[in-house]
Write a protein that binds this DNA or RNA. Structure first.
Lengths: 78, 78
DNA sequence: CGCTCTATTTATAAGAG
DNA sequence: TCTCTTATAAATAGAGC
């Protein structure tokens, strides 16, 4: 298992790519959640797989769109 | 180092919290980049620290806003 | 698909400079 | 605050069901 150093390049095998996507999506969302809790930060993650599916995570109370809007406002005001 | 299992709760010490934020932000962006390459996916991450600073990552050629818009369109069309 | 298992790689907390 | 180190915790690739 984990036979060698992982090379970061596109996984050509479709099944492997989808499995890896699913696993790493879970890992990324978990990391995002942890960062939000540990550091009291607002976090949003968007994923758009090459099969055309959307996945997102946000720890904002009011959801991703509100988080995005608040950030745009903050940029606008800065 | 890493003296025990990390408990996921707000780090009360300000200095520690900022150091952890910086470290984990780097880790999260790295994971996001890897997922994008390995799985040929579009990825966006937004972070809003409790000091009011915005950080973001996107592997979209045309930037985060375009990625966000394309996703909204995909939701609208679905 | 969506789980579990586990050897191994990877991330990282704390310390040092 | 940045970089490096290093022990340890955490993620995960590949396999099996």
């Amino acid at each position: 298992m984990v036979r060698g150093k992982t090379v970061i390049e596109k996984i050509e095998n479709t099944t492997s790519r989808q499995v890896t996507f699913s696993k790493r999506k879970g890992g990324l969302f978990k990391k995002a959640r942890e960062l939000g809790v540990l550091c009291d930060a607002q976090v949003g993650v968007l994923l758009f797989s090459n099969t055309g599916r959307l996945y997102d995570y946000s720890n904002s109370n009011t959801g991703y769109t509100t988080l995005y809007r608040s950030i745009c406002l903050s940029i606008y005001l800065s």
